[in-house]
Design a protein around this nucleic acid. Structure first.
Lengths: 198, 198
DNA sequence: CATGCTACCAAGCAAGCGCTTGCTTGACAA
DNA sequence: TTGTCAAGCAAGCGCTTGCTTGGTAGCATG
């Protein structure tokens, strides 16, 4: 009946991070409203009331998940944006970093929760998230500006960025790790579609 | 306390369709799991048990919503695909029809539910939906094939179609009716990004 | 050895959930 | 006038939900 209790290392830090990771997976798979505290507790082998030692409410768990997802992807894409290279090289590195966060094993549940469950946050928490999101989108807007300056795209407007984000973020719906295409190939295909020079 | 009971026309057909419409709005706004039968009943001014006269389960209500959404968009885009014209003209008409179903007042809740809540269906119901979806995607694949034959795109692979669908479907996340851009302008911008000739 | 703190467990509460039941109502038919 | 039927209402059942509460094992510090 009871799940096997894995041996905790004696100096393991507290299990808040473990709860967040389990919550991200469950929120991504069953949705925020479809996931119960008991689901999360079971996933980390706790009693159903124990997660509330680490989080005041279920909403706070969701907020922790989406903020970690946002921070991680911003860090990864920001690093790609900051590297040296032509606008095209920078752009392709950013594509790869973004897709990697969405699709790779570790962290894809954070991204999926961020994309699909954020609207369950209350107004105050959502405001915090939007601030982060604006900073992230500025990275992309700048990259598009550089591409236009170097003549590789015609239009660097907001709508262009949003359409690009759609193509990227929608991969979550259809990408399968063993589906023939690697993340790198998808990134190349996108830049091939959008950029004029080759 | 009680909502004002609007006077029913004496020959009004049964209210099943009204329930489906209300359910589509609520599922789109709060998610399937986040919407209660009581929410739906209240929206159509019924008692909480009464919708079960028309539907056996809550899942059946979801199925009715997504099937209606799928049928409506297939009809609209199919009509655009069947019209006479160059591959480019056909493609642009399809873009417009698809976006119109996603973004226009009537029916956008059906589309949003279809896109975001279908995974709550059980296996049997999902199989029915997938069959419809395959037929719909074949419309697009054919349109891409024609565009390639006429030399307006380089690549008509499955991945191209999925990336395009992503750019289209993601508009649900950011489009606002009074946001400066019309649906027609967005459709034009997409075809401008993807197609080579002008 | 006493004290205090961290990180839980065991139990359960109030509210809300999907769904069922027995009954009513108004329209129409015989 | 009586019978039938569609379309509900009123009530509530059994269960699940997010969250709370009182207690405590294990470790660190004095």
């Amino acid at each position: 009946m009871a799940a096997s209790r894995r041996p905790l290392a004696p100096d393991e830090p507290n299990r808040r991070a473990e709860i967040v990771r389990a919550a991200s997976r469950l929120f991504a798979e069953k949705g925020y409203a479809g996931t119960t505290i008991r689901d999360i507790a079971r996933a980390v082998d706790m009693q159903s009331g124990s997660p509330f030692y680490h989080f005041k409410t279920k909403h706070d768990m969701l907020l922790a998940v989406v903020l970690e997802g946002m921070a991680t992807i911003t860090r990864a894409v920001g690093a790609a944006a900051a590297r040296a290279g032509t606008p095209r090289e920078v752009f392709e590195a950013m594509l790869l970093a973004h897709l990697d966060q969405l699709l790779a094993e570790d962290g894809r549940h954070f991204a999926a929760t961020l994309l699909h469950e954020s609207h369950h946050l209350e107004a105050a928490a959502r405001a915090v998230l939007i601030e982060q999101k604006d900073a992230y989108e500025a990275l992309w807007q700048k990259a598009l500006r550089e591409l236009k300056r170097s003549g590789e795209i015609d239009d660097d407007s907001r709508v262009t960025r949003l359409l690009l984000m759609g193509a990227l973020n929608w991969t979550v719906q259809w990408y399968r790790p063993n589906g023939g295409r690697t993340v790198k190939q998808i990134a190349r295909q996108i830049s091939g579609m959008l950029l004029k020079s080759r």
